[in-house]
């Protein structure tokens, strides 16, 4: 579906994407995980065929975006980072007119619009102005709109950023359904839980490069331990206490507000810490996540 070789994007002197190789297969959910400024959105815009490739090779659905932009875009669904809905049109007309832009005939557009209103659970808002919708509804409408042409490939740029937890789960459920219907999904996110939930395979991006690639499980197995013991001490004590627990795990990460001790047996770490007479304010043993993978690979957390 997507094949990139040595793909680069620069804006003047600034290089946002510094040569990445990506291969996305039909039917899979593929993720770009990374902090803001990692080059995810620039990559997405190149895939969406609205941003010329600076160098390297890019093929979308077997076509070259430089020459076949309209043909590629005809088979893509694009859900941008910000909801760019047509605020001057009603909810229904947003879907209808957008479908017409793809060259889809009137009757099919109308049928599709009604189906997608149901899919997005906003049928009762069909005649409402877009500006009167809640944030979650706007997001669902944006996603519904990106499906109007029954795309082969759906690009979702930070689909759940800014949504409340409930709205996120509704959206995840809908994305699962699409995947089951055979739509290839490409998702960017800086939420590791989202990446773990949705992606079959992902790349971790940092500063315009790919830091790691694999399934969420593979990445965690390869770059982290099974469990993590989180130790929270008083303000400013973490740096100094790090060396006192260093030998308890395979690795220790110092964060401003806590220490992370990586070990396959998290409970034993906590017990040992208490035996040494250290008194953390709070402890937590959890499984490793992609956040830990990212921390390991870049030395920074995703939220930065």
């Amino acid at each position: 579906m997507i094949s990139a070789r040595g793909l680069r994007k620069s804006f003047g002197d600034f290089e946002a994407v510094k040569g990445i190789d990506v291969e996305v297969r039909r039917g899979e959910a593929f993720g770009f995980l990374g902090p803001n400024g990692a080059g995810k959105s620039s990559t997405m815009r190149m895939i969406a065929s609205v941003s010329p490739v600076s160098s390297g090779e890019l093929r979308i659905l077997g076509m070259d975006p430089a020459t076949d932009g309209p043909a590629i875009r005809g088979r893509l669904g694009v859900c941008p980072q910000e909801d760019t809905l047509d605020n001057e049109l009603s909810v229904f007309d947003n879907l209808y007119i957008y479908g017409r832009y793809f060259g889809i005939d009137r009757a099919t557009c109308r049928d599709r619009a009604h189906e997608l209103l149901e899919f997005a659970q906003i049928t009762d808002k069909a005649k409402a102005k877009v500006e009167n919708l809640s944030g979650g509804m706007k997001r669902r409408l944006t996603i519904a709109r990106s499906l109007i042409n029954s795309p082969d490939l759906l690009l979702l740029d930070e689909p759940t950023t800014g949504l409340d937890p409930q709205a996120r789960h509704v959206l995840w459920d809908q994305l699962f359904r699409l995947k089951q219907a055979g739509v290839t999904l490409v998702i960017t996110t800086h939420y590791m839980d989202e990446a773990e939930q949705l992606c079959d395979r992902l790349v971790v991006m940092d500063k315009g490069l790919i830091a790691a690639e694999g399934s969420p499980r593979e990445l965690i197995d390869a770059h982290s331990t099974r469990e993590v013991a989180e130790l929270r001490f008083g303000v400013g004590e973490h740096e100094a206490l790090a060396e006192k627990v260093e030998d308890l795990g395979e690795r220790v990460e110092v964060l401003p507000d806590r220490l992370l001790v990586y070990s396959d047996k998290g409970e034993e770490v906590v017990t040992a810490v208490l035996e040494r007479g250290l008194q953390p304010i709070a402890t937590l043993v959890r499984r490793s996540t992609l956040e830990d993978v990212f921390l390991r690979l870049t030395g920074r957390s995703l939220a930065d």
Partner: peptide, 14 residues
């Protein structure tokens, strides 16, 4: 403000 043309460019429109 509306970014309307950005929306259109996500479709086959040029």
């Amino acid at each position: 403000y509306e970014k309307l043309y950005d929306q259109m460019l996500a479709t086959p429109l040029s």
